[in-house]
Amino acid sequence: MSGTLDRGAALPGAQGGDPQPLEVVVGLVLRAGVTLSSACLAVGVVLSMFGASAAAADILLHVGVIVLLATPVARVVASIVQYVGGRDWPFAALTAIVLLELMASVVAALVFNKRL
């Protein structure tokens, strides 16, 4: 991690100054995911309580949950893209491992899914 000396020297100044692009991108991804998911869930829950269309409510609720579950995954993917763009290979690799772990949990979910 200390292999890039020139970048290391620039770090203290960069950390105290403007918001880093990574933080901005991550913030946008998280906000977009939560907003979309909450909107689906809100409409879905209202429909399921008062509405006539149970099927539509059910679809919206599942979409809301899936979008929510996908939000941190999207944040991890965005981080990998940012780290690769900044040629920060150690952190690109670490974040890629996190993505692999998330994919492994999807595999575990499919194994436990009794409907398949």
Binding site: L69, S105, V106, A108, A109, L110, F112, K114
Partner: peptide, 8 residues
């Protein structure tokens, strides 16, 4: 959560 979701 993904695992719980898969398990129903």
């Amino acid at each position: 959560a993904v695992i719980y979701y898969g398990h129903g």
